[in-house]
Amino acid sequence: CHSECLGNCSQPDDPTKCVACRNFYLDGRCVETCPPPYYHFQDWRCVNFSFCQDLHHKCKNSRRQGCHQYVIHNNKCIPECPSGYTMNSSNLLCTPCLGPCPKVCHLLEGEKTIDSVTSAQELRGCTVINGSLIINIRGGNNLAAELEANLGLIEEISGYLKIRRSYALVSLSFFRKLRLIRGETLEIGNYSFYALDNQNLRQLWDWSKHNLTITQGKLFFHYNPKLCLSEIHKMEEVSGTKGRQERNDIALKTNGDQASCENELLKFSYIRTSFDKILLRWEPYWPPDFRDLLGFMLFYKEAPYQNVTEFDGQDACGSNSWTVVDIDPPLRSNDPKSQNHPGWLMRGLKPWTQYAIFVKTLVTFSDERRTYGAKSDIIYVQTDATNPSVPLDPISVSNSSSQIILKWKPPSDPNGNITHYLVFWERQAEDSELFELDYCLKGLKLPSRTWSPPFESEDSQKHNQSEYEDSAGECCSCPKTDSQILKELEESSFRKTFEDYLHNVVFVPRKT
Score class of each variant (00 low, 15 high):
265 L>Y: 06
187 E>Y: 03
355 Y>Q: 00
184 E>A: 10
211 N>T: 11
180 L>P: 00
127 T>S: 08
383 T>H: 00
355 Y>K: 01
388 P>S: 07
201 L>D: 00
350 K>T: 06
274 S>I: 02
259 A>T: 11
203 Q>V: 06
284 P>R: 08
170 V>M: 05
373 G>V: 04
239 S>M: 14
271 I>L: 08
124 R>P: 01
183 G>C: 03
257 D>P: 03
332 R>M: 14
353 T>Q: 06
306 Q>V: 07
293 L>M: 10
301 K>E: 02
252 L>M: 10
126 C>V: 02
399 N>V: 07
344 W>F: 05
256 G>M: 05
263 N>V: 05
266 L>Y: 01
402 S>R: 14
278 I>Q: 01
351 P>Y: 08
360 K>A: 14
289 D>R: 08
305 Y>E: 04
283 E>W: 05
352 W>E: 12
361 T>P: 01
287 P>C: 13
227 L>C: 12
219 L>F: 08
163 I>M: 11
268 F>P: 01
303 A>R: 06
133 L>V: 11
223 Y>R: 11
340 N>Q: 14
369 R>A: 04
170 V>T: 10
126 C>W: 00
120 A>M: 09
241 T>V: 07
360 K>F: 02
283 E>S: 07
232 I>V: 04
233 H>T: 13
325 V>M: 07
108 L>S: 12
277 K>W: 15
188 I>S: 09
228 C>S: 03
192 S>G: 08
255 N>F: 06
134 I>A: 08
333 S>L: 06
313 G>F: 03
139 G>R: 08
144 A>G: 11
314 Q>F: 12
191 Y>E: 04
265 L>C: 06
240 G>W: 15
390 V>T: 14
233 H>R: 05
358 F>R: 14
119 S>Y: 11
217 G>R: 02
143 L>H: 03
115 D>S: 08
252 L>G: 15
226 K>M: 09
173 S>T: 11
133 L>R: 01
205 W>P: 01
352 W>G: 00
103 K>S: 11
188 I>M: 02
207 W>P: 03
379 I>D: 00
268 F>K: 00
113 T>D: 02
161 L>H: 00
214 I>F: 11
298 L>I: 06
155 E>A: 06
403 Q>T: 03
286 W>T: 10
211 N>L: 11
374 A>S: 06
307 N>F: 09
228 C>G: 02
258 Q>I: 02
409 K>N: 14
274 S>A: 05
361 T>S: 12
384 D>L: 12
209 K>V: 14
122 E>C: 03
154 I>Q: 00
324 V>Q: 06
212 L>P: 03
175 F>K: 00
324 V>C: 07
330 P>W: 03
368 E>K: 14
105 C>K: 00
155 E>T: 06
298 L>D: 00
340 N>T: 14
175 F>A: 03
356 A>N: 00
247 R>H: 14
162 K>W: 11
149 A>W: 15
187 E>A: 04
410 P>R: 07
279 L>I: 04
361 T>L: 04
177 K>Y: 07
195 A>K: 00
172 L>M: 13
380 Y>R: 04
335 D>G: 03
119 S>T: 04
210 H>W: 09
301 K>Y: 03
176 R>S: 12
251 A>G: 08
236 E>P: 01
290 F>K: 03
306 Q>R: 12
263 N>E: 15
291 R>I: 10
255 N>Y: 05
260 S>F: 03
108 L>P: 13
216 Q>T: 13
234 K>R: 12
231 E>F: 15
365 F>R: 15
385 A>V: 03
253 K>Q: 13
337 K>G: 08
292 D>P: 04
272 R>V: 12
302 E>V: 04
321 S>E: 13
327 I>C: 05
113 T>C: 15
369 R>Q: 05
162 K>Q: 15
404 I>S: 02
181 I>S: 00
177 K>A: 04
326 D>I: 11
185 T>W: 12
140 G>Q: 15
393 D>S: 14
223 Y>S: 10
404 I>A: 14
177 K>D: 15
207 W>K: 03
137 I>F: 13
388 P>W: 07
330 P>N: 08
231 E>M: 09
340 N>A: 07
393 D>L: 06
361 T>V: 05
199 Q>L: 11
340 N>W: 13
411 P>W: 02
252 L>Y: 05
147 L>V: 07
287 P>W: 03
158 S>L: 15
363 V>R: 12
321 S>V: 09
191 Y>T: 10
300 Y>W: 08
114 I>K: 00
150 N>F: 14
244 R>H: 15
309 T>R: 03
181 I>Y: 00
219 L>G: 04
373 G>D: 05
411 P>S: 02
190 N>H: 08
329 P>E: 08
327 I>P: 02
353 T>M: 01
395 I>K: 11
217 G>W: 01
114 I>P: 01
104 V>E: 13
335 D>K: 12
266 L>K: 00
166 S>I: 05
175 F>S: 00
273 T>S: 14
377 D>S: 07
342 P>L: 08
315 D>R: 15
226 K>I: 10
241 T>H: 10
397 V>I: 13
232 I>G: 01
331 L>Q: 13
181 I>H: 00
305 Y>T: 09
408 W>H: 00
169 L>M: 08
161 L>I: 14
136 N>K: 05
256 G>S: 06
135 I>G: 00
143 L>S: 14
220 F>V: 04
207 W>V: 05
124 R>V: 07
311 F>P: 12
177 K>V: 08
172 L>E: 00
116 S>A: 04
174 F>Y: 14
196 L>Q: 15
320 N>F: 11
267 K>I: 15
249 D>W: 11
328 D>L: 04
395 I>S: 06
183 G>S: 03
263 N>Y: 03
115 D>N: 07
330 P>E: 11
236 E>N: 15
235 M>W: 03
175 F>Q: 00
278 I>A: 02
371 T>L: 13
110 G>F: 10
281 R>I: 14
239 S>Y: 03
199 Q>C: 14
113 T>V: 09
401 S>F: 06
124 R>Q: 04
142 N>P: 12
378 I>K: 02
141 N>Q: 07
290 F>Y: 10
140 G>E: 05
341 H>W: 12
358 F>D: 02
167 Y>T: 15
369 R>V: 09
303 A>Q: 14
158 S>W: 11
215 T>Q: 09
405 I>R: 06
201 L>W: 04
199 Q>T: 11
165 R>V: 13
249 D>S: 03
310 E>H: 15
177 K>E: 15
244 R>N: 03
335 D>P: 03
259 A>S: 09
143 L>M: 15
176 R>N: 04
166 S>P: 01
350 K>P: 01
161 L>P: 01
122 E>Y: 09
392 L>W: 06
337 K>T: 12
116 S>H: 10
255 N>K: 04
121 Q>T: 10
